Simulated assay, not measured.
Amino acid sequence: MFSCKVPFKNRLPESVSLVAHPCDNATNNLRVNFNQPLLKEKQNFLVCVKGLNYRHKADFSIRLVEWLELHKILGADKIVIYELQVHPNTSKALEHYVKSGFVELVKTSLPGFYSNVPDLMSVFLVKNLHVQMFQEVIQYNDCLYKYMNMYNFIVLVDVDEVFKVPADRRSPFGVILPLSTDTWYDLIYKKTIPKVANVKPPPAAFKARNLIFADDKAELQDWYPDIPRYMYLLQNVQRNVNYTFPSGAGIKAFHNPQIVFALHNHLPRQCIGYSDGWCPVHDFDLQDVHMQHYCTGKEKDECKLHRGVNLSMDTAIWKYKDRLTEATGKSLKEIGLL
């Protein structure tokens, strides 16, 4: 992370150059992003999603539509998705939401020769998870800086697990699900902000604890007949009894872009005005919200769950059942996937 002060007051640079040593001749020129909200009024919630790498998985498109429609219902104003490579059906689904203005798609790649060898990318990502994790951080911070002046909160969530990625991938798919309210707006503005009104310093982020939901429908064949089988989120309602330990594992958060200076996958990495990279973070009350992480690879320790003492039924998501089923079905038909 490089930063420097603007050398003049009340003027914004249109571009900058980076050099390795002082007085080097610049060989690059990078445009400065300074996006502002239309009519000077910010929207509330931007969701940033790291690079999708699902070229050979056709069935992801249907689950992606359900996931996107749920976030519409929760109150996301826009979703920015970074794309490495996806199946044509997934492209069709994404383009549907790009046309509606709900999704912005950012084509991206890995550095070096891997970015130009798509057939090897899947193998490379699985065997070099640390490289991909660094790339995720780049994408998340790119999203933060482009939109920091346009939204009140930036939310980082993943879609990996719901799409059955290889078992040794650990990045969680997520839905930050309100429990005591129906929308993110009510969760943040009516429930949480009043609770921290007198907290000093003010929180840079609000974090939701993680719960693991088991994807065992195909194994046990106990489908709910009043819910279409393709509704992945609504069909999988068996979850771990306990929250993920330690308390910071798998969490996701709402970040205040006026305070947060740098993002990690789960928490703010640096905040403006604080030394040593420290950021004040507030834990949501457990009765108000949790993070739903869907587990698909039984080889993973966190996914070795069994019905009974380890799992309990959690149908909190069913309060959206009618709206989500109708909206998903409608979009799937419009896209041509149903």
Rank of each mutant, 00 (worst) to 15 (best):
F2Y: 13
C4T: 09
K5M: 10
N10G: 04
S15D: 11
L18C: 06
A26I: 01
R31K: 10
N33E: 08
L38G: 13
L39S: 14
K40I: 12
N44L: 14
L46C: 14
V49E: 06
Y54S: 04
A58D: 02
G75A: 08
I81Y: 11
P88C: 08
A93G: 14
F102V: 01
S115G: 15
S115A: 14
N116G: 01
D119H: 05
V126M: 08
V131M: 00
V131T: 00
V131E: 00
Q132I: 01
Q132K: 02
F134V: 00
Y140I: 00
M150I: 12
F153I: 06
I154L: 13
K164A: 09
V165C: 03
P166R: 12
S171A: 05
F173N: 06
F173W: 08
L177I: 15
T183Q: 02
A204E: 02
F206I: 11
D215E: 11
D216M: 07
D216K: 04
Q221S: 11
L234P: 01
Q238D: 15
N240E: 15
T244N: 04
S247Y: 11
A253Q: 12
A253F: 08
V260L: 13
L267A: 13
R269M: 11
I272T: 13
G273K: 09
Y274G: 03
C279R: 04
P280Y: 10
D285M: 03
L286Y: 10
T296D: 06
L305S: 12
H306L: 12
I317K: 05
R323N: 04
A327S: 14
